[in-house]
Simulated scan of single mutants.
Amino acid sequence: MTPAAGQPPRASQAGASRFSDPAAARRAVELALPMLQASLRDKAVGESGCMHVVVMDPTLQPGDCAFEEAILYEHSLPSREAWDADYSRYARAKASLSWRTGMASAQVIHCSPHRLRSDDTLLGGAAVVDGIVVAVSGANAWYDEAFAGCVAMLLRAVAQGSCASAQPAG
């Protein structure tokens, strides 16, 4: 689950990605934190003042393991004690829908409702970028999706940087 105040965010050991491991996901979220923290103070973005981010392991697919095992990293803003709702549960539900379908949650809901199962969320806020699934909950759904997309792009950039550093010269 999510860490208590002052503790580092939790990261699972799911998957075996060479460049998109829990440390890379943590780094992607860290790079996005200034934007995410600023958004918590902007009532036009959302009124909760809270947020939860879920990053899925891009090497794992629904047939490979249970959803929970494919969670690469999670981060809560601020600590859960300040929450007025279970943003972790909402973000996980969005991530689950997008992980299963390979589509942004809003895209499934608005363009492919025939793919929705009876227990799927009807909340947008997950993005899929080159197979990287990230979900955010706490802001308005359109901002949740934008933040999720930013974190996914940052994870891709972190992985690209690691890959470039690992390539032999010549």
Rank of each mutant, 00 (worst) to 15 (best):
R18Y: 00
Y143W: 12
M1E: 07
F19C: 02
E30N: 09
A148E: 06
P113E: 06
A82P: 06
M103V: 02
R100S: 10
V55R: 03
D42F: 01
A169F: 08
V129H: 06
R80Q: 13
D21W: 01
P62W: 00
M1G: 15
S76K: 01
A4C: 12
G15P: 07
A91C: 00
V136H: 08
Q37M: 05
A82Q: 13
R10G: 12
S39W: 08
P8V: 13
V54R: 11
G63R: 14
Q7P: 10
G49P: 01
S105K: 04
A38C: 02
G138Q: 06
D21L: 07
P62A: 03
L123V: 09
R27A: 15
Y90W: 14
V55L: 01
A139V: 06
R26P: 05
A146S: 13
A135S: 08
R41S: 14
S98V: 08
G6S: 10
C150Y: 08
H114G: 15
N140L: 14
D86A: 09
L155N: 03
V158C: 06
D42R: 05
R156T: 12
V55N: 10
S105C: 08
V45F: 00
R41P: 01
G149F: 05
A24L: 07
Y73E: 11
F19S: 01
L72M: 04
S12V: 07
G102Y: 03
Y87N: 14
M1D: 04
T101P: 00
A95K: 10
S17P: 00
A152Y: 02
G15Y: 01
V55G: 02
A23D: 15
G125P: 05
V55Y: 05
A95Q: 11
V53R: 06
W142G: 04
S98F: 03
E30R: 14
A148G: 03
P62K: 05
